[in-house]
Structure formats: C-alpha cells, structure tokens
C-alpha cells in the first residue's frame, strides 16, 4: 500500500536555509531514507544527503527526524501515522555543509586527542593473552558505528558552542572507558579524561544512551564507570590512603599517566 507522505526537509547551507515541503509517494515497509532518496530522484536532484549501507551499520545517514537524532535508514515510516508530517533536518550540533550534510570533523579532532592503546610486553612465546571474561567486557563499546548521534544530542556541545574545545563527548568517553578497562593497556587516562576531555562537564542526563542506534548503554556502562574511576584517582582520600599503605589491590599497577 502506498500513500503520500507529508515530508519536510531542511534545505540550505551555511548562509541560510529553510524547511521546505516535499510531499512524496511512499510504500509500506519503507524508511525515511527511502523517502529522501525518492525526493532526490523525482523532485530535488541536487538534494545533498550522506548515506552508504542502508543497514544501520555505517553510521553515515545521521540526521534529525521530527527533532530526534536518528539514522534515517533505521527510521521506519510505519512508526508514524500516515497523515503525520515528518520533518527531516541535518544534525543541529555540527556546522552544516549543505542540506542534510554536516561537517562532523569535530569528532575526528577529538579522536586525535585520545592516546591510542599502549600494550605491555608480550608473553615469552611472543603472544599476548586476555581472558575471555576481560575480552567480553569491551565488546559492547566496540559496537559503536560512529554515527555521532550521541555527540549530536549531547547538550554540552549542542547548546553551548563554546564548550566544543573542552569537551570530547560521549563517543569518546566510551573509548576512554574501554581503554581504561583494558587489562593490557599501560596508559592511565583518568587525569586526561577529567581534564582535557572534560568528563566533569557531563551531567549524565543520558540523552546519548537514548539515541544510540546500537543500544550501547553509554552512560551506565562507560561514562559513569569512568567518572567513578576519576573519583578513585582525584577525589577519594580513602583510595589514596589505601594505595599508600598497600591495602588496594594491585590491579592498576604498571600504568603510566598520559
């Protein structure tokens, strides 16, 4: 069954733009990206949209659908009423390039500032070993497809452009947490996470978790554990005392602050 979808799309560039109406014929089972492509094919050949896999795995088609950050390819039209108007805009946290395409280089700059894993020496047979249970812990974090919807929705930078310099954002707190939990990594990134990455600016309002298309529990499993690790390092006198008199486990030994 097909019907005419009341679709509105933001069109423009850095100099200005507006939301325009594009009523378009759609069918059952289609997603927002299908409707966008049909508009591109039939009504606006120069509509700029970034997309690739159409399967929710490449993280390219991030946009905002009715004000909510979504992957357009994973946003089913059947989730809306047929007479409902659907408004699609580019992500509103990043500089717009044209139409639905934004400049997400902020995220790549933040990625560069995060020191990569530094593994310790190999075992005698030249291999490195991790127990399965330790491997599994980081698997959730590696599901990230870098769609940057969490970065888009995070009010710390979405509502405060001036915070962009001091704040890495949820996607990178995920990475900080993953590495901090890594048993073979020798870097201690806790000071860096709190200082240069601005972990303290996060007020854990969980929007990153709400929008993650991979269902990663960013706040509960990465940001809060990372905040607790920073407390160990910077704010908890008992932890400090325990490590001085040898009561703490030696779990953190061998790490060097970066």
């Amino acid at each position: 069954m097909s019907y005419t979808l009341k679709l509105r799309i933001w069109r423009g560039d850095r100099d200005g733009g507006e939301i325009q109406d594009f009523p378009v014929e759609v069918s059952d089972g289609e997603v927002v990206l299908d409707a966008i492509h049909r508009v591109q094919a039939t009504q606006a050949g120069d509509l700029a949209v970034r997309w690739n896999c159409k399967a929710g795995k490449c993280g390219s088609c991030s946009a905002e659908v009715n004000g909510r950050p979504r992957l357009m390819c994973m946003c089913r039209l059947s989730d809306f009423e047929q007479d409902e108007t659907i408004t699609v805009t580019p992500m509103r946290t990043f500089p717009v390039i044209r139409d639905l395409v934004t400049d997400v280089s902020f995220n790549y700059e933040k990625a560069k500032q995060l020191p990569a894993a530094s593994l310790g020496p190999r075992d005698a047979d030249g291999k490195r070993r991790m127990a399965q249970v330790d491997v599994e812990r980081g698997q959730e974090f590696r599901k990230c497809i870098e769609c940057f919807l969490c970065q888009d929705v995070c009010h710390v930078v979405r509502d405060h452009e001036d915070n962009k310099e001091a704040f890495a954002g949820p996607r990178f707190f995920l990475r900080y947490a993953e590495l901090d939990m890594h048993p073979l990594d020798t870097h201690d990134r806790r000071e860096l996470a709190q200082g240069a990455a601005g972990l303290g600016m996060c007020n854990i309002t969980k929007c990153c978790t709400e929008v993650c298309p991979e269902g990663i529990r960013i706040t509960d499993n990465a940001i809060i554990p990372m905040k607790e690790r920073v407390v160990d390092k910077k704010f908890d006198p008992l932890v400090w005392l325990g490590s001085k008199i040898g009561l703490r486990t030696k779990d953190d030994e061998g790490r060097v602050e970066v």
């Binding site: 933001w10 423009g12 850095r14 733009g17 009715n66 805009t89 946290t93 452009e161």
Partner: peptide, 24 residues
C-alpha cells in the same frame, strides 16, 4: 528561550529558529 548564538542557533549550524522540532 534557547541560548542565542551559542547553541543550536549559532552561526555555523543549519538555520532553524525553533528550539526543538520534537512533536511528541
């Protein structure tokens, strides 16, 4: 209401005046 020129209405972003387009 939105923080002017600081957040979603800052100069480099897509020019949209509404503080949110959420309809729910």
């Amino acid at each position: 209401m939105a923080s002017t020129d600081q957040g979603v209405t800052s100069p480099t972003r897509a020019r949209i005046t509404e503080r949110t387009l959420r309809q729910d």
